[in-house]
Nucleic acid binder design. Sequence first.
DNA 1: CTAGGTCAAAGGTCAG
DNA 2: CTGACCTTTGACCTA
Lengths: 240, 240
Amino acid sequence: MEAHLSKISTLPASPTESAVSVGMDESRADKSPAPGKSLSPALLCKVCGDRSSGKHYGIYACNGCSGFFKRSVRRKLIYRCQAGTGMCPVDKAHRNQCQACRLKKCLQAGMNKDGDENIDVTSNEPERTSSEYQMSLYPSSSLENVYETSARLLFMAVKWAKNLPVILLEEAWSELFLLCAIQWSLPLDSCPLLSVPELSPTLQETRGLKDPEQVENLQDQSQVMLGQHSRTHYPSQPVR
Amino acid sequence: MEAHLSKISTLPASPTESAVSVGMDESRADKSPAPGKSLSPALLCKVCGDRSSGKHYGIYACNGCSGFFKRSVRRKLIYRCQAGTGMCPVDKAHRNQCQACRLKKCLQAGMNKDGDENIDVTSNEPERTSSEYQMSLYPSSSLENVYETSARLLFMAVKWAKNLPVILLEEAWSELFLLCAIQWSLPLDSCPLLSVPELSPTLQETRGLKDPEQVENLQDQSQVMLGQHSRTHYPSQPVR
DNA sequence: CTAGGTCAAAGGTCAG
DNA sequence: CTGACCTTTGACCTA
């Protein structure tokens, strides 16, 4: 969490143009693994020129670029070229200098999640890839001081957590967590925020990762347990 | 904390299917070789619904499930359902999410090492397989596996969070947080758990640290904002 | 045909 | 975060 928050501070307000402004390079090309099977052809990473360990996401790439692309795609990361030029050199020695340019080059080189070999990013849909990493979310206004309030809540939550008796965490962490989890899982299904058109798909998609059905089951299980617990320790009070 | 987590075996790799996502350029073989042989019925994997490449281990199965079953049997692997429910969906898109449930479904579908077609696993030994690959879920007594369930939930939450698109966290952290905070703050007042005599005093005391009144205000504010937000973006739906 | 074997490439891990 | 390294998956090939 800290990581993300800290990242927010460093990240500029508008990540719009960045990683995926594909231009018009001509990379594509060859792909050498010619017929007869020459071995020397592509041992090099098409992105940074390092030694390639084979094909990754559709092109010959090194472990580094492969992993980098994997992480970027999975977490839908959007980087920003600090130099602002979008033309940072991406070779073995400099590939870690600018993530934005590295990702851009990965895409231009033809990397894609499905591992298809012939994706022409230049002519096809210049927006396609970008739409994958970037989602125009955001309800214009209506939420002016959400930040203000959220920040305040966050601040207080942290303060609260810091003062939480250790004993409580040690002895009852599981109950506390269960508790939070239950409350936490609810909004995923019923919270109005999810109704925001731009957000919903993303969240839905994200949830898919952990399998909605499974969660449902756990939720049910949790509810049952909570109910039992409640009845056991507080028979006189109605369940929420 | 770690103690409980460590109890849960780590989940092996689980690549998302890729290569064969399309469906019509089949070149390969058979399929509709011809007359006198109706293949229309079972071109689908009985386990995951993917395209079947013919019979494998007694049933129509895809290459994936065939290979998976082959490996599982040969190495006598025993998996464990992370969700603990043993009810994970097993389709083309999710088959790699839970090996335990995949294998269970393979067996239920009738797969068997000898390739016999009519093995009825259900009538034979209903418990044998299930007891082996699946665990008895559900709390017999109230708090027996609170730890188990909590640990599982925590595990899933962490896993989920790790893959959460950063954009979501960056752009919507405040909303997400607000969301959690709202849900979160409720139990402090109304959750049954707090009614547990041993816990209650502690929490009450703790809460004092952050000034109940302030919290109340923030909660109200949050509720109001949530309400507005809700009405704004989803006028047709009643507020929770 | 399909068991069974094979291996490129995807996913996960985790010091550095 | 990076990337070397390891496991699993599944398309193909052989027998």
